[in-house]
Amino acid sequence: MGHEVISNTSLSPTVHRLVVSAPRIAVVRQPGQFVIVRLGPGAERIPLTIVGSDAAAGTIELVIQAVGKSTADLVAVAAGSYIDDVAGPLGQPTDLITKGTAVCLAGGVGAAVMYPIARRLSEIGVELITVVGARSSASILFEDEFRSFGDLIVCTDDGSAGRAGFVTDALADLIAAQTVDVVYAAGPVPMMRAASAVTSPRDIRTIVSLNPIMVDGTGMCGGCRVTVAGAMRFACVDGPEFDAHSVDFDELADRLTTYGAAERIAVDHVCRSAGQPVTGRHGAG
């Protein structure tokens, strides 16, 4: 059994788009929700955003950045092969505004999280400005799609496309220049923390999609706990999106480093078994 991978295309050097058979999830999923995926026996259960779906074809779309063992194994699954387990849709749907101006802020693979939100906002018809950031021009995701949804600002670390610098600098300029009703943000924790710091003095509603380590995704293990407004919340059932101004980002960033040593062992183990040098990128996703 399992879920057939219908196609696997490379979007950037480390990011692949997989179209995966999951008929029921394709029908009911909403922006902001994710699945828990387990490739096969011995594999980890990892959370991945549902980037898109085709209810008629019975497929969902995943966009995966290879950062460690589990994601590297997934981007290597060839079309026609199977993923054993796909559970979902999990998490709460995004709280979408229906009028006004929204900014969608995406850093790195956070573009995968932001894509379904931006798409739905453009369908609803709100004013939409998307800001995407990437290392360089080669790793910008969904550029054409975002442009078709509304205004687009591209930022690259090296200046090879769009403006040089952080997405949060672009965000600061934007909110200085015009009225913004809500900011949706997804990306590395430092980026989300910085976005929150930018919008909080002006009290602009800001929603971040948190990415703690998860196991079951059903509220059973408590591993995904985050502190929001001083209270413990489980990101898999209460989130993954929360009010940025109330999130304890320090704790989140710290908890994500729990398995740093183990992740290196996992990658080394595979490389040794395969007799190849270590090639994985170990930075946080």
Binding site: G42, A43, R45, D216, A262, I265
Partner: peptide, 18 residues
């Protein structure tokens, strides 16, 4: 217990879950 029993973390790194 889930990491160890369901995900077989006792066999890490043969099993992927730490």
């Amino acid at each position: 217990l889930t990491r160890v029993n369901l995900m077989r973390a006792y066999a890490f790194p043969e099993a992927d879950t730490p």
